[in-house]
């Protein structure tokens, strides 16, 4: 399996507080990697650096060998990164279809091609019935779906999912998991997901990376990681 995303020695501090320190791991092409760790472990900071919201203080982030450090979000998007936000950010006054269209315009320059792509993606996530509604009127699970659809419409090579399952009911989570599995199987889409819902992490991930207090802790198969005493101690044991 070829390496798609590669992080090496990634370090970031905010006002002297280390959010990430010397983090390194990889995501292979076609791989789904779960990134877990207790709250405040620095997962969202890591996502923001991969997506180009701010650069790391030190370290490299590469996508297929190309250095992403210093790129702006729209440039990392062009490089093949699609992302969702932990707190969903739909364009509330635009319709669901228009929301996705804006992502699709990144993949397709022509208007009608972009519309077709938007419709396809909406059908894929099961939001096609709501296409004409304003995004501001959607329920939380629908907004999460919309956020995923928007990111998918840009035709990313690597999708960053920031807690898309949080707040979903178990059956909704299972639907989401099924969508991502299908996408991964059919299009070879790679996914890096930050997730607290272990049900989703276990069902989706090929491999799990654990970080704690901003540092790399361990990585491995989901079944092995959840049995690792260090992980139990810092994360699973730490929660109720």
């Amino acid at each position: 399996m070829n390496t798609l995303l590669e992080l090496q020695g990634v370090t970031k501090s905010f006002r002297g507080l280390k959010a990430n320190e010397d983090i390194g791991f990889t995501v292979g092409e076609g791989e789904i990697v779960g990134l877990i760790g207790p709250n405040g472990a620095g997962k969202t900071t890591l996502f923001n650096m991969i997506a180009g919201v701010f650069p790391p203080d030190r370290g490299t982030i590469r996508l297929s060998g190309r250095d992403l450090v210093g790129l702006k979000p729209h440039q990392t998007c062009a490089a093949g990164i699609g992302r969702t936000f932990q707190i969903v950010r739909p364009f509330p006054h635009l319709t669901v279809a228009e929301n996705v269209l804006i992502g699709a315009l990144h993949a397709e320059k022509k208007m009608h091609a972009a519309r077709t792509r938007a419709a396809e993606v909406l059908a894929l996530v099961g939001l096609d019935a709501k296409a004409a509604q304003k995004a501001g009127t959607l329920t939380l699970p629908e907004r999460k779906c919309l956020e995923v659809a928007r990111a998918l419409a840009t035709r990313p090579r690597l999708l960053l999912l920031d807690e898309v399952m949080a707040g979903l009911r178990p059956n909704e989570t299972d639907q989401m998991v099924a969508i991502f599995r299908r996408l991964n199987r059919e299009t070879g889409l790679s996914i890096l997901l930050v997730e607290h819902v272990m049900r989703a992490v276990m069902a989706l991930s090929h491999r799990v990376v654990v970080i704690n207090s901003g540092r790399f802790l361990c990585a491995g198969l989901p079944a092995d990681v959840v049995k690792d005493p260090r992980v139990l101690e810092c994360y699973l044991g730490g929660e109720d």
Binding site: R83, F91, H93, L105
Partner: peptide, 25 residues
């Protein structure tokens, strides 16, 4: 109804989200 028009609306609604979808702000 043009790509530019939709990108303008994305900028108006949420610049950070627009940027993550490849809009050059």
């Amino acid at each position: 109804a043009s790509p530019l028009g939709y990108r303008w609306q994305a900028l108006r609604e949420d610049p950070a989200a627009a940027e993550s979808l490849g809009v050059n702000l």
